[in-house]
Structures are given as structure tokens and as C-alpha cells.
């Protein structure tokens, strides 16, 4: 019992660090770059992905003993496409402006490698609760990544960060660099972020190593 609880916690947490969709698995690159021109776009894309991912992971896990191995891929596709259609319809009805901004990347959630990857690598082999935790962890980590990249690009590209009516105010004397909102700015920002993260990880592991040697 205790062990299972610990494992549930781990299944949730691992999506943020060891199996971070963007920074360690490098999956779902297209939406990660396409919708991150602002923090709020990243947030709503992330919410959509959390919903789809949890839906598909739960149902794949529930049906994992029934789905024949040979036809699992088409079944996964249907289990992923169904929540995507739900998201599309809900967004179109309740937040048409955001739906237009995210554009074709809402239906394209269906081919987001993160979702397929979690279904195949985790939900197809694990119990329902663990799969749900796995989905929530990965989904939230993905959302945080989108918000981080979106926030950086929005701030450097427009000089402010807007979330609903709350606006992080403009910094005086700072002339925003419009390039950050264009594809080159997106690619370079993500590449630089990944490099900085690698450097931080390398430093941390080096320190750990030297500490353990001393100990």
C-alpha cells in the first residue's frame, strides 16, 4: 500500500524532471514553439493538452487488457482524437478568440508526440491511477514549459507580460525585440534555454560527484 502511494507520487513528479516532455524527452516541439508567443497562449495550450492527455491515458489504461497488441495504434489514435474533438468544440464555443490564436495547433494535439508517447510507454502497461498521475505530471510540466518559454518570448518581444487583465508593466528604456515573436526568436530561445539547463545539470551532477567522493 505504502509502496503504491510512493509510486503514485513518483509517477506524478517524474514528468517534471527526469521525463520532462520538452527538456529531457524533447517531444512536442511543434506546439512548444508555435504557440509560445505569449504566456497566456502557452497556458491555454497546456490546459488543452492536460485534458487530452489525462483522458487518453485513463482510457488506454482501462482498456489495456482488452486492446489487441496488433491494432493498439489505431485504437490509441481514436482514444486521443476523441478528447481533441471535445477540446476543439468547447474552445470554439467558449473562447473563440483563443481558439483562433492557437489555430491548427488545437486539432494537431492529436499528433502531439507527448500524448502518443505516454500512451505507448506508460498507460498501456500501468494501472489507471498511476496512468492518471503520469498524465497530470507530464501535462502540467508541459504547461509550465510552455508558460516559461511563452513568458520569456512575450516579455522580450513586447516588453510586458499580460495574463487576462493583469499586466506585468513595461520596463522603461527597454525597446522590445520583435524578433522574439518570430520563428527565429522561438528556435533560438528554446535552444539557448536547453543549453543553459544542460549546463546547470552538468554543474549540479559534478558537485554531487565531488561531494560523494569527499564523503
Amino acid at each position: 500500500m505504502n509502496k503504491n502511494k510512493a509510486s503514485l507520487g513518483y509517477d506524478f513528479i517524474k514528468g517534471f524532471i527526469q521525463e520532462n516532455p520538452t527538456f529531457s524527452l524533447a517531444v512536442g516541439m511543434c506546439p512548444t514553439l508555435a504557440v509560445t508567443t505569449s504566456l497566456v497562449n502557452g497556458f491555454w495550450m497546456g490546459v488543452a493538452v492536460i485534458f487530452v492527455l489525462t483522458f487518453s491515458n485513463v482510457f488506454v489504461s482501462l482498456l489495456r487488457k482488452v486492446i489487441p497488441d496488433e491494432i493498439r495504434i489505431p485504437v490509441f489514435i481514436i482514444l486521443i482524437a476523441t478528447p481533441v474533438v471535445i477540446v476543439e468544440l468547447v474552445m470554439k464555443a467558449y473562447m473563440p478568440a483563443m481558439y483562433n490564436i492557437l489555430g491548427i495547433f488545437v486539432p494537431l494535439i492529436v499528433v502531439n508526440c507527448i500524448i502518443f508517447h505516454r500512451a505507448e510507454a506508460f498507460a498501456y502497461r500501468n494501472p489507471v491511477l498511476n496512468s492518471a498521475m503520469d498524465a497530470l505530471g507530464s501535462g502540467m510540466a508541459f504547461t509550465l514549459n510552455l508558460m516559461l518559454i511563452g513568458g520569456i518570448r512575450e516579455f522580450l518581444g513586447t516588453g510586458q507580460i499580460a495574463f487576462g487583465s493583469a499586466v506585468f508593466p513595461k520596463v522603461p528604456l527597454f525597446e522590445p525585440a520583435a524578433v522574439m515573436l518570430t520563428p527565429p526568436g522561438g528556435f533560438i530561445t528554446l535552444g539557448a534555454l536547453m543549453a543553459l539547463l544542460n549546463i546547470a545539470v552538468a554543474r549540479a551532477s559534478k558537485r554531487k560527484k565531488s561531494e560523494s567522493q569527499v564523503g
Binding site: E175, A177, A178, V179, M180, T182, P184, G185
Partner: peptide, 9 residues
């Protein structure tokens, strides 16, 4: 130069 044109046109 291409970066600067895109950044501060």
C-alpha cells in the same frame, strides 16, 4: 544583421 532587422525594424 538579419536578427537586428527582425528585432528592431
Amino acid at each position: 544583421r538579419a536578427f537586428l532587422i527582425a528585432a528592431w525594424p
